[in-house]
């Protein structure tokens, strides 16, 4: 008998990362996938399982979720002191090179400004995700998502607010869309923390 094809790797990995303590559920989904053979079915079930369990985890421990958000924001704030220096270096580095290449053309300059402060921001998200995950090892996925949600809500609100009051370049909304998923790096930082041995 030919062994059944394994389920799609991405949702399977999501289950391992976000529901490590629910191996039986992952096994059930694996078994049912072997019977149904539908990748769409597996994707839907896996994403729903993650969403249901993470939401239930936050709802069951609201104070812990608040603590996770506070720890994450504090880390971001502390990192901002280093981030300012990284930004200063990056903007100088980008601008120097772009001025050499494009002189003072406005579009490359705009990209330079936007790109120069994103690496520090990305690093801040990674470190804050790592910190929240280390501080909340027993409920890591739910607490990481709780903190990520607060950041996404805040950055979303901030972007909308700025785009409403902005009177200049039409290109800025492109940046907003391109960089909107950047806070998801918090989850990457959390996953990175989970992969490191704790000793």
């Amino acid at each position: 008998m030919t062994p059944a094809a394994p389920p799609p790797p991405v949702p399977r990995r999501l289950l391992e990362l976000f529901l490590p303590e629910h191996a039986a559920l992952a096994g059930d989904l694996h078994e049912e996938f072997g019977r149904r053979g539908s990748a769409w079915w597996y994707w839907r079930q896996a994403l729903a399982a993650v969403a249901i369990h993470v939401t239930a985890g936050i709802a069951a421990r609201p104070l812990l979720a608040l603590r996770a958000a506070a720890a994450g924001w504090t880390t971001l704030w502390l990192f901002s002191f280093v981030g300012v220096e990284i930004n200063r270096f990056m903007s100088g580095w980008f601008l120097d090179r772009l001025i050499l290449l494009f002189w003072t053309h406005p579009f490359p300059m705009m990209w330079a400004t936007q790109l120069s402060y994103r690496p520090a921001l990305a690093l801040g998200y990674l470190i804050s995700g790592w910190t929240v995950a280390r501080l909340h090892r027993t409920h890591r996925p739910a607490m990481l998502v709780a903190f990520t949600m607060t950041v996404l809500l805040w950055t979303g609100y901030d972007e909308v607010q700025r785009s409403l009051t902005r009177s200049t370049p039409v290109l800025y909304p492109v940046f907003d869309v391109v960089f909107a998923p950047l806070p998801l790096l918090i989850l990457v930082g959390g996953v990175w923390s989970a992969r490191r041995p704790s000793s």
């Binding site: 039986a24 559920l25 059930d28 049912e32 729903a48 399982a49 993650v50 969403a51």
Partner: peptide, 25 residues
Amino acid sequence: AYGVPIAREIEETGGRPVLLGAVYA
């Protein structure tokens, strides 16, 4: 009674589509 037959029983006898994640929760 583990996840798969429980979900199947609800779907087939109860006539209600279910998500395995919701069953486990």
